[in-house]
Amino acid sequence: MGMLDKKYHDSNIIIVGLESALNWARKNSLWYEQFGLACCAIEMMATAASRYDFDRFGIIPRSSPRQADVMIVAGTVTMKMASRIERLYEQMSEPRYVISMGSCSNCGGPYWEHGYHVLKGVDKVIPVDVYVPGCPPRPEALLEGFLKLQEKITGETIIVKKNEADKKPETA
């Protein structure tokens, strides 16, 4: 899409498939819901700060789930919090995505063995699209998670409505 406007400079008509145009628009402005729970939230804030800038990819934080496209579950999910996460996920409007950031929300993390109050992975309550490993993951790892999500969005189609259970998660 980059240099097309230079080729057709006297007639401003570009012909492209509807799905590609929609997917291109959607993947370059993913607004995430600020859902930092624990240590990974600090790395999420650091990714949004000046050095590892999120904004250059079009990613900005929104406080409310109703205005967000993607939910980054950053940190340990506990039993007390699990029902709230489900409710927040249901409040997001489709198309919606979930990135599970850090070991704790992938699989329980360092608390997998004796943690009685820790949910062993947020995918027990909501479907996850991208898993970003690390404890905590570096900001570059989170950015790669977003790039993987963008790849996934490029391949999506609006014609056939996919079943939520068919979604296959990718690991960054």
């Binding site: 039993m79 699990a82 029902s83 997998w112 009685y116 109050h117 949910l119 062993k120 027990k124 309550v125």
Partner: peptide, 19 residues
């Protein structure tokens, strides 16, 4: 939970607490 003979409950509100 901090009693020495505590046994973790299997499910909490329908969500499994173990693996």
């Amino acid at each position: 939970p901090l009693r020495k003979d505590y046994v973790q409950q299997e499910f909490y509100q329908g969500i499994p607490t173990g693996e």
